[in-house]
Design a protein around this nucleic acid. Sequence first.
DNA 1: CCGACCAAATTGGTCAGACCAAAATTCACG
DNA 2: CGTGAATTTTGGTCTGACCAATTTGGTCGG
Lengths: 239, 239
Amino acid sequence: MAGIPDEIAGSLIGDILSGRYQVRDRLPSERDLATRFSANRGAVREAMKKLEQIGLAEIQPGGARVKDTSEASLDVLGHMLGQGDLPDALLVDQILVVINSLLSVAAEQTLELASENELASIRALTLPFLEDKLSDEAHTLARFELMRSIMLTNKNLPLQLIAKTLFEQVAPHLAHLKQHVVIDHDAFATFARQLDRALAERDLPAVHATFTAFSNLNRESMLRAFERARRQAREASLS
Amino acid sequence: MAGIPDEIAGSLIGDILSGRYQVRDRLPSERDLATRFSANRGAVREAMKKLEQIGLAEIQPGGARVKDTSEASLDVLGHMLGQGDLPDALLVDQILVVINSLLSVAAEQTLELASENELASIRALTLPFLEDKLSDEAHTLARFELMRSIMLTNKNLPLQLIAKTLFEQVAPHLAHLKQHVVIDHDAFATFARQLDRALAERDLPAVHATFTAFSNLNRESMLRAFERARRQAREASLS
DNA sequence: CCGACCAAATTGGTCAGACCAAAATTCACG
DNA sequence: CGTGAATTTTGGTCTGACCAATTTGGTCGG
């Protein structure tokens, strides 16, 4: 299922992101890589094309060179998060900042453009947060559903694409952390009430303020989850 | 310089975006395409890989299928903008909305994290807008430099990557429109003064409000440019 | 000793033809 | 008329080859 080119690309990406190949270094030739990976040059070539598409390498006749991460495409994020045992907490936080700001924009545009029906269907998604005995899983599900709905109701294609990409990059690496996340149900209930009111009254500043609060909730809860995960990792290494 | 696979990919992308291949349709086989483009199957294969990376096609043993634009990567935007004679005005507007909201986030984070020196260097970039006799070109240059600086001072890598990608996608297609853009120097001067003050006092809400104004300025000026371009195109078609 | 220039080796770009496994298609059978 | 097996089609990978651009290394002249 993996595919040989993807394996090669993954290995090379790991080498680059771990610093084994420095920026501006020349990567081994396609022929050398083919030998090293016991694969055909065509497979290596597809892997190199992937590196180029991700923006980690620049291919030219004469040789391929490593490019800086800051010149890469969004797809590097997933690979960067997958480097260590735990994802980079700072990077995850930065992604959350962006996601939440995009949510805010989406919501603001929804206020301007969405029909009453669309608005109502979003507001309905805030109801689960008011329930008393919501399991953590159901809560997480409700959060995602609310975010997804806000992103889809919005007609801004670029916004949708960015959000989708960010989610896809970060989601797989957050799966392990899920067990460490502790949800502040009361805080989210307050948020849900505020969001519902802001949407009902089409109060744009209130929507913005609400999502700022939502953002802070998410970021703090994620940072705490990282702390717990790290602590557990330390204890495990002592035994 | 173009490269055979890129030519093939470009042709297929055009066919997909223009609707010649509908979503979920099967694309011709690699062998057929190789014949049609008088190219080797390897070249066609690389083109198909590119389609897959862009997110416009899904390749599986048995055949490749067209995917919906909403499931693509950010890189489709550039191709979508390059479809007609003029870029899609609505799409450009949506991109501007996103860019400007990202600018706002970047600026807000700068307020929290940037040193006095970094802040000062950004503030210095607002000065050109106060000059009286600034040519349109110099004005555009100053705008870009200000945006670039805000994006780079910020330490948020995902934010930088998204902004860079969006710029790269949209910039080439805006080159033709530049001649139609009329700049409201006074409005930008007001914006510059407000931004400078907001940064100096690290006034977060003011920064947000300022960028909202900036966003509206940019969007309106671009929409007007589209109108002018369309009008000129109509007149040209009459002659 | 150094820089400019030229030839050889290296490298990516493309092509041709082949085999395999998985999917799609066809078709005979119940 | 369905259904399941057989066949064809399709993508995935491999081997080996040639070309053009680049890099490299050495040579020559200053």
